Computed example of a mutant assay.
Amino acid sequence: MSNASAPSSAGTPARHYIGLMSGTSMDGVDGVLATFAPQPEVLAHVHLPFPAPLRDALFALQSPGDNEIDREALAAQALVVVYADCCTALLQETALQAADIVAIGVHGQTIRHRPERGYTRQLNDPSRLAELTGIDVVADFRSRDLAAGGQGAPLVPAFHADVFGAPGQTRVICNIGGISNLSILRGKDEVHGFDCGPGNALLDAWAERTLGRPYDEGGRLAAAGTVDETLLKQLLDEPFFSASPPKSTGRDLFNTAWLDGKLQAWRDAGIGDAVDKAEHAADIQATLTALTARTIAEEIAIHAPGCDAVYVCGGGAHNETLMRALRTALREKAPSVAHVVSTQALGMDVEHVEALAFAWLAARFGQRAPGNLPAVTGARGLRVLGALYPR
């Protein structure tokens, strides 16, 4: 744990920023238009789904393939069009003009995350976004932390500490996107955070394979199944889960090839061909749901067993079956945790949190104030994150 203070938004002028986030779920882009004075106020939120050809291109770029440079460049151009459309919709919703916006903070779409090899790759074309919107763009937030010896992720704990930290309380903010991650906040000044493992990534992949839909709405497929403990044991047999922080991960590890390898091991353990039968699809989804819930609960049990509450954000907060599984896992692993609710209980919509974090990081960049936390990422020190692409 670190006693270093998280960056604070105190003194940030009440000016307008846009934050854009497209995460590892790769379902689309969330955008917010917000002010910081000093606490954030979201004036508008827009979600735009990715067109099917772009989504397919992004998934294809998650693993090595032919002609990657050309495919990456074309996908970045298409991605930025969606970003620009999101900005336009936010301006229309608030009746503001481009000139009213200080900057757009945009994370980009992660297509590789290999901190152990010293790099991370977020697909983006911020110069084109500045050209399309007529607004300053701040992007490339991870690189400086990596250059300073950090993982480059997760970056949101500093933001979580600023807006959710409370004196005298230990709060856990659990973001369940494609990957799940935790921010452990002891007040505002002691902050710890790391990735836990797969959030929705494997759940969505299995839903698409078996239901032909991009996700299991409300966790209905999982609710119809039964957790298979043999399969769950195979899934949990992954060194990442027992690794100590700082740690971060992505689809480089938790992807369909990883899942298929685990399913094959399950077959070899005696399930035979049943894994391929439709009646077992719900059991597999239930077990993948248990994997997400259990890995989160085990990390909370190790690092914040006496926390006052767990607040969930991201798409996983809408999955009722997953939320029930998380509460059940916490009763087993960390029984003193009494409250597991969404960030709505703290006054922030679960869909706003990550996009707002990148608006906040853009504001931090404008102040030339640090946006990382060395205790979270493992960097050698506090760093100003991002690069400016002027309008």
Rank of each mutant, 00 (worst) to 15 (best):
T295S: 06
T343A: 00
G315P: 01
D66L: 15
M21V: 08
G219H: 11
V227D: 03
Q344D: 12
E93V: 03
A309L: 09
V191C: 11
A375Y: 09
V312C: 03
F141D: 04
G19Y: 05
R251Y: 02
R121G: 04
E229T: 11
A14D: 13
D70F: 12
P167N: 02
P126A: 08
W258Q: 11
V353A: 02
S22D: 06
G381A: 04
A37K: 09
R364Y: 14
I111S: 13
R112K: 14
Q285C: 10
E190M: 14
K262I: 00
M26Q: 05
G316T: 05
G347P: 06
F141T: 10
L202S: 10
W206V: 05
N124S: 11
A60E: 02
T226F: 10
A153N: 09
A362Y: 04
A224C: 15
G178N: 00
R324V: 13
S25G: 07
H113K: 07
R142F: 07
T24V: 04
R121M: 15
H352G: 03
A158W: 00
A334D: 11
L155R: 04
G11T: 10
W360T: 01
F59C: 12
A95M: 15
W266C: 01
G23D: 08
I179N: 02
I173S: 00
G371Y: 04
Q97A: 15
A6E: 07
L388Y: 00
A362I: 09
G23W: 00
V227Y: 15
T120S: 15
W266H: 14
F164W: 08
G197W: 08
H318R: 14
G168E: 04
L322E: 04
I69W: 12
V312D: 02
A293D: 02
A257W: 07
H192R: 14
F194P: 00
F254K: 06
P214E: 07
L236Y: 09
L221F: 12
G149Y: 13
L90R: 08
W206Y: 03
A334Y: 07
D228V: 01
E320Q: 15
A222M: 08
R267P: 12
D85S: 14
I101W: 02
I173C: 02
F365L: 08
Q264P: 09
A4M: 11
A334R: 09
G23Y: 03
S63N: 14
T24E: 14
S2K: 12
G165I: 08
Q109L: 05
Q367F: 03
A387V: 07
I111L: 11
A375L: 04
T328A: 13
S22C: 14
